[in-house]
Every structure is written in C-alpha cells, then in structure tokens.
Amino acid sequence: MLLVAVVLPWSTLSLPGLFEGPLNSPGTLQLLAICLVFAGLALGYDLLFGRAGLLSFGHALYVAAGAYGVDILVSHYGWQLWTAAAVTVPAAAVLAALLGSVALRTSGIAFSMVTLAFAQVGHIVINRDPGGLTGGEEGLPLSSAGLPAMFTGVVNTVNLYWLALAFLTVVVLVVHAIDRAPLGRTLTGLRDDERRIAVLGLSPYRLKLLAFVLAGTLAGLGGVIYALVVGGASPHIASSELTLSLIVMAVLGGAGTRWGAVVGGFLYAYLDQRLARLGGSLPGPFGEPLFVLGTLFILAVYFAPGGLASLGSRLEPLRRALRPRRPGDGHPAPVTDAV
C-alpha cells in the first residue's frame, strides 16, 4: 500500500468521481497528504486505544500542541521550521508525560473524563487567543517566511505530500516495532487483564504512561506536519470532536490491528473532505459529512465489530474454500482475531 503511495505523484491518471483533477495535481496531492496525516494520527491513537486499551478523549490536545507550537514559533517568533519542530515535538512529549502522569492515576471511564477535561482546557485557551498568540477562533495561518522554499508555493505541494507520507511511515515503523517488541505484548496484556501484568512484576502505571507519552509524541509530530500541510492551525484540531473522529477512524478500520487504523484514518479523512465538497449536491442530511460518517460508524460497531480489518478475516474461510487444496494444507490457517 505504501508502495502505491510512493509512485502516486508521478501519475497523471485521472479518477473522475474520486478526485477532481489528475492524481499529481496540487489539489489532489494536498487532499491525499491530509489523508496520510490522519492515517498516521489514527494509528498513533490506536497505540493507546487498540493496543493499551486506554480510551483517551483528549488526544487532540497533543496534536494541537504540535500544530500550534510550531505555528507560533515560526509565525510569531520567526524561528526556522526545523528548529521550531525540534522544540515543539519534545515539548508535546513533556506535556503528555505531565498530564498522563496525573490522568493515569485513574482508570476506566474516569481516565476518559480526565483526558477529556484536560483537552478541553487546551481548546478553551486556544479559543481565547491569549496574548494574541493563537489567533482565537480564526486560527493562526503559518507564515511562509520561516519555511524552507521547498514547502512554499503551489508547485511544491508534492513535497508536502512526501512529508505526510514520511510521517505516516515513521508512525507505522514505530507502532509496528512496538507490536513486535515485548512492550507490545505487554501492552495488549495490560488491556486484557491488568492484574496479570502486575503479577509479572511490571508496573502497569509506568507501562501505560510510556504508551501515553509515545502516542502524545507521535500526535505532536503529526500536528507539526498537519500545520505545514494545511498552512496553519485552527481551534478545530484542539476540539474533542477531533479526538472523537480519531476514535471513529481506529474503530472503523479495526482497532488494535496492524493496518486497521491507517486504513480507517485515510478513508475517514478522504470521505470527510470529499463529502464536504459534494455537500451541496447531496439531498438532506447526506450533505453533512458528519452525518454520513457518524452513521457509518454506528453501523460498523454493530455489523463489523472488528472494523474493516476483520472483514478480511471473515472472508478468509470463503477464500480457503475456493483455493485448490494442496497436500499438507489440512488444518485451517489461523484466523487473525481482530479486537
């Protein structure tokens, strides 16, 4: 899949209906870049939700920290992009460590509420425009003065696309490395039965905090990339609605699976943008992207509890039945159990 993404900018193919203009036009590339960023953000969130079983309602805060952090340093203080990013991402990590260490003293629904409340503070502060820093409800456009020439101008949209793809690759590498490492198994063990992990002599609190900080760092990085791709930051990315949509993405795709959240994030972001553009031409509530996505999501919870990733494994018996039988193919292949 990533391979397709790599060759895509050289394609002049037109897919009418799916995209306006050929694949390598700036408009399409920007749309795709946003989809890639959300794919990465969703997978980063799934490290918390699908793997560690932490239902955080405040992930938007760290995305916003990354986006506003870099935006403010570049646009108000005239920093160079790379220096600003190098400061912002660790700052998001520190923020996640501080707030996570408080929030993780609670568990279950209370944890969800505390993270929601912390993020709400971020949303409120950004909306109030303290000291004229955040631009309030209008948002803060990213000043191009501090940006390298390669990221400015419409002709360079392809570079933003590369950047978004690089971000997604980083998230995929990190999360998949964790999946393979003992840490990944410990985290899923934590999700399934916290006492068992505690019996092994590991501290559930520290493990959860580690996952929280890692996810927060990836979110901060994603925020930086997002600000570059869309050319600024707006209060929407700090809202609880953004976190809710990350949850929707992870669940739609298949929480806790290798590629589920990536696919879910990409599709969600694509539909969100396309539906918004088509909005006027669709009848009634179907003109509202959130109506369509929310309804899809509810249907997915009922009819595809493992998300899109589980549909593949559900079709597996059918595929096996159709496959010609080879000697030694006697017992069925294990069906991956999507959670």
Binding site: E241, L244, S245, I247, V248, V251, P285, E288, P289, L290, F291, V292, L293, G294, T295, F297, I298, V301, Y302
Partner: peptide, 13 residues
Amino acid sequence: LVTVGLSLAGVAL
C-alpha cells in the same frame, strides 16, 4: 462508541 457516533451524526442531522 455508538453514543459517540450518534452525537456526531445527530448534531449533523
């Protein structure tokens, strides 16, 4: 999750 979906879809409706 269902109530989350409902809150998004319902407000849009």
